[in-house]
Each structure stands twice: as C-alpha cells, then as structure tokens.
Amino acid sequence: MIEIFNSSIGKKLIMSITGVFLMLFLLVHLTVNLMLLVGDGEVFNRAAHFMATNPAIKIIEPLLAIGFVFHIIYATYLTIKNRKTRPIGYSKSASNGVSSWSSKNMYILGATILIFLVIHLANFFWKIKFGTVDTITYGTETMHNTYALVAGLFISYWWYDLLYVLGAIFLGFHLSHGFWSAFQTLGWNGTKWLKRLEVIAYIYAIIIGLGFSIIPLYFLIFK
C-alpha cells in the first residue's frame, strides 16, 4: 500500500485529494468573505462568529484547512525532490493555452500563493485568534468585530488591496489547471468529461479569482 503512494500515480493522487480539500475550503471562505460587501458589517460579523462557534463548522473547517495545508507542504516536498531527479508534472495538459501555461508553472504559482497566504494569515487569522480584536454587541450577542479589522486594513493600505488582488489572480490561474487535473487523476478522465472539466475549471477559477478580488477593490474604491 505504501509503495502506491511512493509511485508517480500515488503522488498525484495525494495532490488531487488534498487539492479537492483546498477547493472546498476556498469556496466556503469566499462565501463568508463576500458578506463583507453587505450592510455595515453585521452580516459578516455574525457569519464569522457562526463559523467560529458552530460545533459542526468547528470540525469541518479545520479538516478542510488541514487538507489545504497538507497540499501546500506536500507540493513543496515534491518540488524539492523532483528538482533532484526529474519533474513529475500533471498527467495531461489542457487543450487551451492558459491552462497549459498554468500547468507548466503550478509550483511557481503555488509558491507565490503561499507567500500571500502567510501575509494574509498574519494580518487576519493570527490577530483574530491571538490578538486583541475589538468586540461588538448585536442584541444579546457579543462577538469579535472582525469586519472592522478587515475593512480597516483594506481602507488604510492601498498596496495591500493590490497585493490581495494579485494573489487572487495567481490563485485563479493555479485553479484553472489544478481543478480539472485533480478530478482527472481521480478517474474522470474520459474525453467527454475532460472537456467538461476544463470548462467547469475555468468557471470555478473565475469565480474564486474574481470573488476574492472584488472585496479589496470594493473597499479601495467605495470606502
């Protein structure tokens, strides 16, 4: 069994499974973050509070995050190892130019995203979990004023908005290849399904890339 995961196919399988965790995590994360654009912050604060306190979410979200982190760590390990031997690429390139470019630069895109992720976690996650974020009360509920933290950063530092948008664009390129490649490795590799997956991958990548880009641009332009 261990020999399977030491093989080229096994390594791709691990990357594909953890990649699916990454894609689910991003979808959930984006859904909550888009609530920053609604109202004066109450909707987002309540959503963030729900994600932080709901028992089911407290179990599911860490599992998705662990899959996300393992995807990054394992990709880094494979990159270093493959440079000493030979590159082990994805099993097939897409028929379009953009995905082909993305497939050839997956590790570079991933490394860029990782740098952005570290900055993002330092500014938001770390401050929320271990910092001194102000609280706010709605009715009888008191919670972190996460909206003020996020909005304050986007409003005060235009360069961070541009960095955030750049990170979202790189993420979109990464996903444009990674999405269909993951499902192809998991068995959806027929000619008919491959074409469909390429289209779905583009749609998903655009939704994620554009969705995350809209948030800082909204605060940069309208706030």
Rank of each mutant, 00 (worst) to 15 (best):
G67N: 09
L64Q: 09
K223N: 15
I214K: 13
L36E: 12
M23L: 14
V133A: 02
F154C: 02
I4Q: 08
R86C: 01
P62H: 14
A48D: 07
G209W: 08
A151G: 00
S16H: 05
S95W: 11
F179R: 01
T137A: 02
W101H: 03
G178W: 02
I155Y: 01
A47N: 03
A151M: 07
I4L: 14
S8D: 11
F124P: 03
I119A: 12
I203C: 10
A48I: 02
I206P: 06
Y160I: 09
A168D: 06
R196K: 15
F183K: 01
T53L: 02
I136C: 02
S8W: 05
S102F: 07
V43D: 05
L217N: 11
D40H: 10
F183A: 00
G10S: 06
F154A: 07
R86W: 06
S7P: 11
K84A: 09
K92D: 00
F173D: 04
M106H: 09
I14M: 12
Y147M: 04
G187C: 03
G152I: 05
F130P: 00
T142S: 03
S93A: 06
M51Y: 11
N145H: 02
S176F: 09
L175E: 04
L186E: 04
I221T: 13
Q184D: 04
A122V: 12
I9K: 13
S95D: 13
K58L: 12
V43N: 05
L163W: 12
L36A: 03
W188Y: 11
G19H: 04
G131P: 03
A94N: 06
H177M: 08
M15H: 04
K104T: 06
N145V: 00
I155H: 03
T185L: 03
L37R: 10
F179C: 03
D161A: 10
L22V: 09
L37S: 12
I72A: 15
L37F: 11
T135S: 05
F212E: 10
T146M: 05
N123T: 11
D40G: 13
A111S: 14
Y218S: 12
I215C: 11
I60W: 07
G89D: 06
H49S: 01
G97D: 07
A52T: 09
H49V: 00
I9G: 03
M1A: 07
W180D: 05
M51E: 14
I4G: 00
S93Y: 11
I4F: 14
T137D: 00
K84R: 15
E61C: 06
I119T: 12
T135E: 01
H29A: 12
G131E: 08
M35E: 06
M1T: 12
I115A: 14
L117Y: 09
N33Y: 08
F116Y: 14
N123E: 11
G167A: 13
R83G: 15
L37Y: 08
S100Q: 13
I14S: 04
I155G: 00
A52L: 08
V43A: 13
E198S: 10
T137K: 12
F44T: 02
K192V: 12
M23N: 04
L194G: 10
S181Y: 04
H177T: 13
L36C: 07
F116C: 05
S16Y: 04
V38D: 09
I60V: 15
L210R: 01
K81M: 08
L217I: 08
F212R: 05
I57R: 01
Y202C: 09
L166T: 14
G187F: 00
T76G: 15
T85L: 08
